[in-house]
């Protein structure tokens, strides 16, 4: 299994009492899996993704990525792992405004020492996303759907084995949403494990599995 989460728990303190934003979550994800998680607002979906990506340390339980325990690594090692293994598509617009579309996509390649030039791969990804003609534009000149595609292309530049996306279609019109979900589906079929948090029921038909988050608990639909 590529991703194994066991008894994953994250507690927050609210007023006087503790509560578990993520509560004893078990999750396994392998190659070509495309899981969708739905759930009410505040049910702990983003918190779960942040735990899996290693941005948050769990209070209980473990995340194993390719057999590696994320929370046991120091920041540099964890960052390197995230950079190489995880493609993270943040909620909202995560495209860097100061950089052109092309530079946004190339950027993760340069964050850690690597040989070679990502230009060719970036070009191919932009073509696959249908935004190659925008390579030299700045984000301010792009539509919401185009920005989302930039985020996806950027998340794929280092050929990650796990793709995490937090509400990637929330601000898109139905056509653009369909296109993005089809992209994820294709990415999953090509061998990458995909985990998407979404609110839209229409998205679920693309997924290989549908999970529901409720009060920090994860269960199959």
């Amino acid at each position: 299994m590529l991703l194994v989460a066991r008894h994953l728990t994250k507690r927050y303190r609210r007023a006087t009492s503790d509560f578990a934003a993520v509560d004893q979550v078990d999750l396994e994800l392998g190659e070509k899996d495309f899981f969708c998680i739905t759930g009410h607002s505040g049910s702990g979906k983003s918190t779960l993704l942040n735990l899996i990506a290693g941005f948050l340390a769990p209070d209980e339980g473990t995340v194993l990525l390719d057999g590696e325990k994320l929370s046991a690594l120091d920041d540099v090692a964890a960052s390197y792992l995230r950079n190489t293994q995880i493609g993270y598509i943040p909620q909202g617009s995560g495209v860097l405004a100061n950089f052109t579309v092309g530079d946004n996509v190339r950027l993760p390649f340069y964050l850690h020492r690597r040989m070679g030039d990502p230009a060719q791969r970036a070009q191919t990804l932009l073509e696959q996303m249908g935004i190659a003609h925008l390579a030299n534009q700045y984000p301010a000149q792009l539509s919401g759907g185009e920005l989302r595609r930039v985020s996806i292309a950027r998340a794929l530049i280092n050929k990650p084995c796990l793709l995490l996306a937090d509400e990637p279609t929330s601000d898109l019109d139905p056509d653009a949403r369909e296109a993005v979900m089809e992209l994820f589906s294709a990415i999953a079929r090509a061998g990458t494990a995909v985990l998407v948090v979404t609110h839209e029921q229409e998205n679920l038909r693309h997924a290989t599995r549908h999970l529901i988050m409720a009060s920090g608990r994860l269960s199959g639909a």
Binding site: N83, G94, L96
Partner: peptide, 15 residues
């Protein structure tokens, strides 16, 4: 938010 994006892309804190 900009720095959070860098983190999400795999930049270490010291970077």
């Amino acid at each position: 938010r900009e720095f959070a994006v860098f983190r999400a892309l795999g930049a270490a804190r010291h970077q």
